[in-house]
C-alpha cells in the first residue's frame, strides 16, 4: 500500500476517527482502571488529530497549533490525577480491577 498517495487530511481523519472509536469501545469493555486511562488517552489523541486536520483544511494551522499544545498540557495534568486516583485504589484494595469499585450505583 502506497501511503504517500493518501492525502494528509484523509490519513489524519481516518486515524483520528479510528482512535476515537477504539478508545470509546475499550472504555466500555475494559474492567481495569489502567486500561480505562489508556482508553481515555486514545480518545484524546483522536480528537487532537481531528483538530490538526480542521486547522489544515481551513488553512488556520496557527490556531490549531495553539489549541493542540494547550490540549496536550491539560491532558497530561488529567492523566497525572487519574494515575494518582488509580494508585489510591490500588493501595486500598491491592488491585486495579474495576469490579472492586462497583459499590456505588449511579
Amino acid at each position: 500500500m502506497n501511503l504517500a498517495g493518501i492525502p494528509f487530511f484523509d490519513a489524519c481523519g481516518i486515524a483520528g476517527a479510528l482512535l476515537l472509536a477504539a478508545g470509546l469501545y475499550y472504555l466500555l469493555v475494559t474492567s481495569n482502571l489502567i486500561r480505562a486511562m489508556i482508553a481515555l488517552e486514545l480518545m484524546i489523541k483522536g480528537v487532537t488529530l481531528f483538530l490538526i486536520l480542521a486547522g489544515r483544511v481551513t488553512g488556520r494551522q496557527d490556531l490549531a497549533q495553539a489549541l493542540v499544545i494547550t490540549l496536550i498540557i491539560i491532558e497530561v495534568v488529567i492523566m497525572v490525577v487519574a494515575g494518582g486516583l488509580v494508585l489510591g485504589v490500588f493501595r486500598n484494595t491491592r488491585s486495579v480491577g474495576s469490579r472492586q469499585i462497583r459499590n456505588l450505583k449511579g
Binding site: L33, L85, V89, L104
Partner: peptide, 14 residues
C-alpha cells in the same frame, strides 16, 4: 483517600 471517594472521583474523571 477512602475507597468511596476514590471511586466517585474516578467516575467523575472518566
Amino acid at each position: 483517600r477512602g475507597m468511596a471517594g476514590l471511586e466517585g472521583a474516578f467516575k467523575y474523571l472518566v
